[in-house]
């Protein structure tokens, strides 16, 4: 099959004269048919598994349906939504999520970009370094969460053990209200710094060398080169990575579930984790659906932003 490919494609001109081209009209029609036949199975699957469930959740969000109680659902209209938007519990979770997303994404961006910048300035061993740095990102959040839980254990965790041998005090990483959220941010940063690094590195290596050479001839300082050449050229791509991470961090569930289960108290309960508790521990399916729809709205806004920047990047 593939043997015949180079034969024909190498000399299209010679062979073309032998067979008359197909009439344009019918071929265009069959093209349209082919496009529909090829795209519709995928679209139908997405409609069935993504859109329909969300529409169902939208319907449930207006009712007091409960997955365990069953029976007919009462129509409540916007009662669920007003209950959620005015609940101080939800406000607290929103604040926790905001601190977590902002903290983790900022740390990742600064660290990831620094590492990428340092790697891009090396001439030897770049491939090996990049590969090594990427390991955390490829691990499942389950593995990451479990393992950090072990390492951060207050009694026999290796982190406290190292702090001890340095003569520093022990930290109750996961069992104190304030440190638990910090631990969550640190673990997420550990896992996803490589992501920012990877994208930043792609941006950094795409910066044309002659710009630096020209700057060097003008005796521009390193810092000046960084600010006027490196950052402006890498920034658009970095912004994409940052937005992508922000969306991912906003919908994060597994790491919280494994690392802290929202505790101690509710100090690490993000919005995702709270939705889970309302839906699967409280079985207030209607309320949870309204909650979920509100989260989806936030994600849609963020995704639109992401796609807009992506489009801008592609047009340049």
């Amino acid at each position: 099959m593939s043997d015949s490919a180079p034969l024909t494609t190498d000399h299209p001109g010679q062979v073309a004269s032998a067979t008359p081209p197909a009439p344009g009209r019918s071929s265009r029609l069959s093209d349209r048919g082919l496009a529909v036949a090829f795209t519709s199975p995928a679209l139908l699957l997405l409609l069935a598994m993504s859109v329909f469930p969300l529409l169902w959740a939208l319907y449930l969000s207006f009712t007091d349906y409960s997955a365990t109680r069953g029976g007919t659902a009462q129509f409540l209209w916007f009662e669920n939504y007003t209950a959620i938007l005015t609940s101080p519990q939800v406000h607290q979770r929103a604040l926790t999520t905001l601190i977590y997303v902002a903290g983790a994404v900022t740390l990742q961006t600064v660290l990831g970009f620094t590492i990428a910048y340092l790697i891009s300035r090396r001439t030897h061993g770049r491939g090996l370094l990049t590969t090594l740095f990427l390991v955390p990102m490829m691990l499942s959040p389950v593995v990451v969460g479990l393992f950090w839980r072990f390492m951060l254990d207050a009694q026999f965790g290796v982190i406290n053990s190292m702090l001890g041998s340095l003569g520093l005090g022990q930290v109750e990483w996961l069992t104190r209200q304030r440190t638990a959220l910090i631990s969550l941010i640190l673990v997420d940063t550990w896992q996803w710094t490589p992501f920012i690094m990877l994208i930043a590195l792609a941006g950094l290596t795409a910066v044309p060398k002659y710009l630096y050479e020209a700057a060097a001839i003008d005796r521009a300082s390193q810092w000046f080169q960084f600010r006027t050449i490196t950052l402006p050229l890498v920034w658009p791509l970095l912004l994409i990575a940052v937005l992508f991470r922000a969306i991912e961090a906003f919908r994060l569930f597994d790491l919280v579930y494994i690392l802290t289960s929202g505790g101690p108290g509710v100090s690490t309960e993000t919005l995702s984790f709270h939705v889970y508790k309302v839906a699967f521990l409280g079985f207030n399916t209607g309320t949870a659906s309204a909650y979920g729809i509100l989260m989806v709205l936030v994600v849609i806004v963020l995704t639109q932003l992401y796609l807009r920047y992506l489009n801008k990047l592609k047009e340049d």
Binding site: L43, A57, L60, I247, R251, F273, V275, G292, T303
Partner: peptide, 23 residues
Amino acid sequence: QLFFILSTRFMPPVVVVIPIFLM
């Protein structure tokens, strides 16, 4: 269409799993 396709991937799994569970 392409944007719609990508945005289905960005939905929070905890939210999607509620109706999927019922379904």
